[in-house]
C-alpha cells in the first residue's frame, strides 16, 4: 500500500548508489598508476576520502534518528539512503584499498567495516521478513496483553484446581512456577521452551516441560485413571486450560524470538561501528604520519 525502505521514492538512493559504484569502477579501471592500485595514488586518496565521508555520514543516522524535530528529510529517506550507500561503501573502499590486504591496522579497519555492512545486510533481510510474522503472531494483542492473559489464565487454572486433589494443586503450582519465557539470548532467539515442572510423585529434581508436555502427560494419566464424575470434569477442565496455556506460551516465545531477531543484529552493527570509527582514525593518522 505504500513504500518500504527499499522502494523509497522509486529507489532513488539505489540509483544514486549504483551511479556512485559505476563512476568509482570506471575510474578504477581507467586509472593506470605506476604502482599496483592502492590508497596512495590520487584516485586512492579520492576514494578513501569519499569512503571516510560516507562512514561518518552513515554513522550520523544514529543522531538523525533521535533528532525528532529535524526537518532534514524524512527518517525513512535517511534509512533508505543509509542502506544503499552503505552497500556501495563496500565497493568504494575495496577499490580504495586496491584489494591489498595484510595483517595491519588498515585491513582491520576494512574487516570491521565488512562486519558492519554484513550485519546491516542481515538487518535489512530481517526487517523485510519478520514484521508480518510478528503481527500475525500477536493476533491483535500487545505483548503486555498476552502476559496479562497468561496471568488470568493461571488464576482461572488455580480456581479450577481448587477442586482437585492436593498433589494436583501442587503440580499446577509447580507448573506455573517452572514456566520460563525467554532466558538466555540463544534461548530467546531460538524460541526454546526451557520450562520445567517438579511433580509431587515424580523425580527429586524438576523435569523438562517444553510446550507443557510433561504436565499434560501427567494430568492425562490421572484423567484416564479417574472413575469419579466430578473429578473427571475438573481434570478435563485442567487439561484444556493447560492446552490454552501451551498455545499462549508458544505465542509469547515466538513474540520474544521475533523481537529478539529484530534487535539482535543492532548489537553487532552499532558497537562495531564505534570500533570502525576508532580504527578509521588510527588508519588515517598512521597513513599521514608514517607513510
Amino acid at each position: 500500500m505504500h513504500q518500504s525502505v527499499l522502494d523509497f521514492e522509486r529507489r532513488r538512493y539505489l540509483k544514486i548508489a549504483l551511479a556512485l559504484c559505476a563512476v568509482s569502477l570506471v575510474a578504477y579501471l581507467w586509472h593506470d598508476p605506476r604502482s599496483p592500485p592502492n590508497g596512495g595514488t590520487w584516485l586512492g586518496y579520492t576514494l578513501g576520502g569519499l569512503g571516510a565521508a560516507l562512514i561518518l555520514w552513515l554513522t550520523a543516522l544514529g543522531v538523525r534518528k533521535r533528532t525528532y524535530t529535524s526537518t532534514l528529510g524524512s527518517l525513512q529517506g535517511w534509512v533508505s539512503a543509509h542502506v544503499y550507500l552503505g552497500l556501495a561503501l563496500l565497493l568504494v573502499v575495496s577499490l580504495h584499498a586496491g584489494f591489498q590486504f595484510g595483517w595491519n591496522i588498515h585491513t582491520l579497519c576494512y574487516v570491521l567495516m565488512v562486519v558492519v555492512i554484513a550485519s546491516g545486510l542481515l538487518g535489512i533481510v530481517l526487517y523485510q521478513r519478520l514484521p508480518q510474522q510478528l503481527s500475525q503472531n500477536r493476533a491483535q494483542q500487545t505483548s503486555d496483553q498476552m502476559l496479562t492473559e497468561l496471568q488470568e489464565l493461571d488464576e482461572r487454572t488455580r480456581r479450577v484446581a481448587a477442586n482437585a486433589s492436593p498433589d494436583e494443586v501442587l503440580a499446577i503450582e509447580a507448573n506455573i512456577a517452572g514456566t520460563r519465557i525467554g532466558g538466555s539470548t540463544v534461548a530467546i532467539l531460538s524460541a526454546q521452551d526451557r520450562s520445567t515442572v517438579r511433580l509431587p510423585d515424580g523425580l527429586a529434581e524438576a523435569e523438562a516441560n517444553p510446550g507443557q508436555a510433561r504436565i499434560l502427560e501427567w494430568l492425562s494419566a490421572r484423567l484416564s485413571a479417574s472413575d469419579d464424575a466430578g473429578r473427571t470434569r475438573t481434570l478435563t477442565d485442567l487439561v484444556s486450560l493447560i492446552g490454552a496455556r501451551r498455545a499462549l506460551l508458544r505465542r509469547l516465545q515466538q513474540d520474544a524470538r521475533l523481537r529478539g531477531w529484530l534487535s539482535v543484529w543492532l548489537y553487532v552493527h552499532v558497537p562495531v561501528t564505534f570500533g570502525l570509527l576508532g580504527s578509521l582514525i588510527a588508519h588515517v593518522v598512521s597513513v599521514f604520519l608514517y607513510w
Binding site: K65, Y68, T71, S74, L75, Q76
Partner: peptide
C-alpha cells in the same frame, strides 16, 4: 506547530506509519 508535518510519520525509519 512543527514544520515538516507529523513527527510520528517523519520519525518512522521503515515508512510503516502513514
Amino acid at each position: 506547530d512543527q514544520s515538516g508535518g507529523p513527527a510520528c510519520v517523519r520519525a518512522c525509519p521503515t515508512g510503516a506509519a502513514l
